[in-house]
Each structure stands twice: as structure tokens, then as C-alpha cells.
Computed example of a mutant assay.
Amino acid sequence: MWRSRRNRDRRTVVCIACGDSVLREDAREYDKEGDRWDRRDKEFEHLCTDCDDEICHQPRDGLESLVLSIESDGLSQEEFLDRYADAVSDSAGPPEDG
């Protein structure tokens, strides 16, 4: 008889958000590139289900390149956030009527 899939992987992983150790089967894969379906040459990080439920699941196309383009050495958090807000508001189109 076949074993249950649920009992196959008893490894633990660490949630990158809260630091808790959880069973791999109970964790969610996190891919900073936003494309978890392209699995070639990737090592995924993991989130526990509670932390995964709290994050935004919207597409992140171009986010990393945007962040890299506005960050620099010695930039305070406030300066970074100001630059980020300016960059995002420049690229946003007009608000849609809802």
C-alpha cells in the first residue's frame, strides 16, 4: 500500500518572517522573484502559514530592480521610503473608478 504523502517529508524549516521552526509540509514556499513555478536552480525560503497569511500576494514584477535602483550606502530608512514612495507614485497610472 502507498504511504500517505503527508508523512513523507518530516524536515523542519525556519520561517523567514518570525523565525519559528515548522514542518516543511506545513510551510509555504517564498520566492523573492515572485515566480515559484520556475523551480530551476532555486532554493526557496519558507514562511509559516500565519506569516504567509499576513503578507501581500500581489505580483512583484520589477520590485527588486526598483529597490536596487533607489538604495545606496548610508541612506536612512526614512530617505529610502521617501525615494520608494516617489518612484512608485511616478510609475502609477491614474486611479481607477471603483
Rank of each mutant, 00 (worst) to 15 (best):
residue 43 E to H: 12
residue 18 C to K: 10
residue 31 D to I: 00
residue 63 L to Q: 10
residue 74 G to S: 05
residue 67 V to K: 08
residue 49 T to W: 05
residue 14 V to F: 02
residue 14 V to P: 00
residue 8 R to E: 12
residue 12 T to P: 00
residue 17 A to C: 13
residue 31 D to W: 03
residue 27 A to Q: 09
residue 92 A to I: 00
residue 38 D to L: 10
residue 43 E to A: 14
residue 88 V to G: 02
residue 29 E to Y: 01
residue 19 G to S: 06
residue 64 E to R: 13
residue 69 S to A: 15
residue 56 C to T: 11
residue 85 A to E: 11
residue 31 D to P: 00
residue 31 D to T: 03
residue 11 R to K: 13
residue 56 C to H: 04
residue 31 D to R: 01
residue 94 P to D: 14
residue 32 K to D: 06
residue 97 D to F: 07
residue 5 R to M: 06
residue 92 A to C: 13
residue 97 D to P: 05
residue 4 S to F: 02
residue 48 C to F: 05
residue 43 E to T: 15
residue 21 S to F: 04
residue 89 S to Y: 06
residue 81 L to N: 14
residue 41 D to E: 13
residue 59 P to V: 03
residue 30 Y to Q: 09
residue 27 A to K: 08
residue 50 D to G: 05
residue 61 D to H: 09
residue 74 G to F: 03
residue 32 K to Y: 03
residue 97 D to T: 12
residue 87 A to H: 04
residue 83 R to N: 09
residue 58 Q to G: 03
residue 54 E to S: 11
residue 64 E to V: 09
residue 66 L to Y: 03
residue 62 G to E: 07
residue 69 S to W: 02
residue 70 I to C: 01
residue 28 R to L: 10
residue 28 R to K: 15
residue 27 A to C: 08
residue 28 R to C: 12
residue 85 A to D: 13
residue 13 V to P: 08
residue 93 G to K: 10
residue 72 S to F: 01
residue 40 R to I: 02
residue 58 Q to N: 09
residue 1 M to C: 04
residue 68 L to Y: 09
residue 48 C to A: 07
residue 6 R to A: 13
residue 92 A to R: 15
residue 40 R to E: 12
residue 54 E to K: 15
residue 81 L to K: 13
residue 4 S to T: 04
residue 65 S to M: 09
residue 15 C to N: 07
residue 78 E to C: 02
residue 36 R to D: 04
residue 41 D to R: 14
residue 2 W to R: 12
residue 42 K to C: 03
residue 6 R to N: 08
residue 59 P to C: 04
residue 74 G to C: 07
residue 51 C to R: 11
residue 14 V to Y: 00
residue 25 E to W: 00
residue 73 D to F: 05
residue 95 P to S: 14
residue 15 C to G: 06
residue 95 P to H: 06
residue 10 R to W: 02
residue 37 W to I: 01
residue 74 G to W: 01
residue 67 V to E: 11
residue 45 E to L: 14
residue 23 L to Y: 12
residue 30 Y to F: 14
residue 16 I to E: 11
residue 19 G to A: 07
residue 68 L to I: 01
residue 40 R to Y: 06
residue 13 V to M: 03
residue 4 S to Y: 03
residue 59 P to R: 05
residue 34 G to W: 04
residue 27 A to M: 10
residue 47 L to I: 04
residue 64 E to C: 01
residue 37 W to A: 11
residue 93 G to T: 10
residue 77 Q to A: 13
residue 70 I to L: 07
residue 5 R to G: 09
residue 90 D to G: 02
residue 59 P to Y: 01
residue 18 C to L: 04
residue 40 R to C: 00
residue 10 R to L: 14
residue 75 L to G: 01
residue 51 C to G: 08
residue 70 I to N: 02
residue 76 S to G: 11
residue 96 E to A: 14
residue 9 D to V: 05
residue 35 D to W: 03
residue 40 R to P: 00
residue 86 D to Y: 01
residue 68 L to R: 15
residue 62 G to R: 10
residue 37 W to P: 00
residue 38 D to C: 07
residue 94 P to M: 08
residue 11 R to V: 00
residue 88 V to Q: 08
residue 36 R to V: 10
residue 73 D to P: 08
residue 70 I to W: 02
residue 64 E to Q: 14
residue 88 V to R: 13
residue 39 R to T: 14
residue 14 V to G: 05
residue 15 C to I: 06
residue 48 C to T: 07
residue 62 G to K: 06
residue 26 D to F: 01
residue 2 W to N: 09
residue 5 R to T: 02
residue 36 R to T: 09
residue 4 S to I: 00
residue 24 R to P: 00
residue 91 S to R: 15
residue 47 L to H: 04
residue 38 D to W: 03
